[in-house]
Write a protein that binds this DNA or RNA. Structure first.
Length: 322
DNA sequence: CGGCTTTGACCCGCGC
DNA sequence: GCGCGGGTCAAAGCCG
């Protein structure tokens, strides 16, 4: 892909080379005003009926019907710029860290799209070999310290499919409240970016969901959040502030607990999924301009976009909600 | 005092 | 083999 992403290219939040491909990941952007706060329940009533997590829906054995419901829902309060799903092929990478999107046909003039890559979920080739290595390490680790063994086990688990979803949000705050409780466990400087990347883990016991938050160096006002894994619990009843999160930007307010419970993933994204990939199959998706112009939610119903999305999701996915 | 953040160290994979 | 970069760990400190 020789075309430059029109001035806006997405710094790959996944950096997935060590993870297997084949999982699903979406990336979307939202324009938010972190200082505002709306009622989170007004937009996505339909979603509330679905307990299927978005993550689950995007897995290989996915039943997209649930998502379809989500997509056919009421207009979100924020703008989704793009969504990307990558099944098996890795993203087209520009250099090492930059994901170069394609999907030009899916881009509408007033939309700005981010691209995403996905990892995890895959179990072929590289990940397999790595996994085998790790497994062997664990097995042979009898003589080694238990610490080492534990680490190896952890790595094996890590290599195992962990669906990831990335989305971009216009926000002044890095860590957006999404209803879950997160504990920061690391921060690293990002190459070629003045902004550090923060690593968070869900504090709920046995929940292995993680998320990474970094600010786009292309657009400092944009926060790139990457969720990894699925929540195996409901949103904590007692959240600091209130359940919806005082800091929750409007874009996040469309989230509904049932879905969030499954993914830790903002449902607004579901509602405003945008076309994002080529007809020929999933690759990546790219913004044609750097301005994060809000994307009209009607896009989802646009015939062309619909078609694009159909490429990405089974037809049932877009069945309109009565 | 518990929960959280900070931050340097460490581990690992990858490219050269 | 070495260096780089990403991701994670864990001790220390902070805060309510």
């Amino acid at each position: 892909m020789s075309d430059e992403p029109g001035g806006f290219y997405y710094h790959d939040p996944f950096h997935d080379d060590r993870y297997a491909t084949g999982a699903t990941a979406f990336s979307f952007s939202t324009s938010t005003n972190s200082s505002l706060y709306n009622s989170p329940s007004q937009d996505l009533h339909g979603l509330g009926s679905s307990h299927m997590s978005f993550t689950e829906s995007l897995h290989g054995s996915t039943d997209y019907n649930t998502i379809e419901t989500a997509f056919g829902l009421s207009p979100p309060s924020s703008q989704l710029f793009s969504v990307v799903k990558e099944e098996q092929k890795p993203l087209v990478m520009d250099g090492g860290d930059t994901v170069v999107g394609v999907g030009e046909t899916a881009v509408t003039p007033n939309s700005s799209i981010s691209s995403s890559s996905t990892e995890a979920g895959g179990d072929e080739d590289t990940s397999k070999s790595k996994k085998d290595r790790l497994q062997k390490e664990v097995e042979d680790g009898g003589g080694e310290s238990s610490k080492k063994v534990n680490k190896s086990k952890k790595k094996i688990e890590k290599i195992k499919r962990e669906p990831r979803f990335a989305f971009m949000t216009k926000s002044e705050v890095d860590h957006l409240e999404d209803g879950y409780r997160w504990r920061k466990y690391g921060q690293k400087a990002v190459k070629n970016s003045p902004f550090p990347r923060s690593y968070y883990r869900c504090t709920t016991q046995k929940c292995t969901v993680k998320k990474r938050v970094e600010r786009s160096f292309q657009d400092p006002s944009t926060v790139i959040t990457t969720y990894e894994g699925q929540h195996n619990h409901q949103i904590p009843a007692t959240l600091r502030g209130n359940a919806a999160g005082v800091m929750l930007p409007p874009s996040m307010l469309t989230m509904t607990p049932p879905l969030m419970a499954g993914t830790g993933f903002p449902q607004e994204f579901i509602v405003q999924m945008a076309p994002m990939y080529n007809h020929g199959g999933m690759s990546s998706f790219y913004p044609q301009s750097s301005n994060l112009t809000p994307l009209h939610h009607q896009q989802l119903q646009h015939p062309d976009d619909y078609g694009l999305l159909q490429d990405m999701f089974p037809s049932t996915f877009f069945k309109q909600e009565p």
